[in-house]
């Protein structure tokens, strides 16, 4: 009765009403930002008196925005590659390995995901000040890799668990070197997990704020750091323009992820 939508009677409308309100609540800020970025009111009056591309011009006219976006992209790509490689190796160990304490090791690998990122940020900041990695590209990558790796491991172990090792064995029996079998048989079979790991890792690094605030230097800033420092001064519509482009990127990546999932189920 309660698990059948058509038999809920008047309760149907209560549930549907709450769901619609929640959907509006979730969509409101996103739609609002996109509209705001084209509005011509510097004081963010809504609905705006007119429409303009001015904030996008200002965004692209200021080299610091592009520079920080470029820094973000470089860091995110390196984090993505390393996170997938380390995640693949660690996942093979966790799923196929025969050693004591696998469960403990898995829990340990996932800890950075559970701890508040502010603790990791402050700890790494102190550590990097000591060893001279603060404000460096390497420091950024190391910090983001720590928080991206758990997501990569979850995505890849999930895919690897559903793959039967006997198929890899068959390839070896047919004469493939064990590593060749892994690369040419197992890897394509778990590619959807690897792609999810890559997308997650990229997005985590690209969007990450708290670690970035601590790792940044005046000459090395990621896009979120630039947005953060601007936000602390004023709520200029240029940020709405930058945010709109970020929303666009999210939508594109979500579609890519959905296509990968669809390809897997086919």
């Amino acid at each position: 009765m309660l698990m059948n939508f058509d038999k809920l009677g008047t309760w149907r409308w209560v549930l549907a009403g709450i769901a619609v309100l929640m959907a509006l609540f979730l969509l409101l800020p996103i739609v609002f930002i996109v509209a705001l970025s084209f509005g011509d009111s510097r004081w963010l009056i809504f609905p705006p008196p007119g429409w303009t591309m001015r904030w996008y011009h200002e965004l692209f006219a200021d080299p610091r925005w592009l520079q920080s976006a470029w820094t973000s992209a470089r860091i995110a790509v390196v984090v993505m590659v390393l996170s997938v490689i380390l995640g693949l190796l660690a996942s093979f160990a966790l799923v196929r390995g025969q050693f004591r304490g696998r469960a403990v090791l898995r829990a340990f690998f996932l800890t950075p995901m559970i701890l508040p990122v502010v603790i990791i940020a402050v700890a790494l900041y102190a550590f990097f000040l000591r060893i001279g990695l603060n404000g460096t590209f390497t420091g950024f990558v190391a910090a983001h890799l720590i928080v991206a790796l758990p997501f990569s491991i979850i995505a890849i172990t999930g895919a690897l668990k559903t793959f039967d090792p006997a198929i890899e064995d068959a390839a070896i029996l047919c004469g493939a070197h064990p590593w060749e079998a892994r690369a040419r048989v197992t890897l394509p079979a778990i590619s959807h997990g690897v792609f999810s790991a890559a997308i997650f890792s990229f997005l985590i690094s690209w969007d990450e704020v708290v670690l970035a605030i601590f790792m940044a230097s005046p000459t090395l800033q990621t896009l979120p750091v630039r947005v953060w420092t601007t936000l602390r001064q004023d709520l200029t519509p240029v940020i709405a323009a930058a945010s709109t482009l970020l929303v666009l990127l999210t939508v594109v990546l979500m579609i890519v992820a959905a296509l990968i999932r669809k390809g897997k189920s086919r």
Binding site: L26, P224, L231, L235
Partner: peptide, 22 residues
């Protein structure tokens, strides 16, 4: 689910900025 995931994966600062203005 599409709406939930969209809001979840939209940049955190973008969402917070929207609420500051709203």
């Amino acid at each position: 689910f599409g709406i939930i995931l969209l809001s979840m994966w939209t940049n955190l600062l973008a969402r917070t900025y929207a609420w500051m203005v709203l």
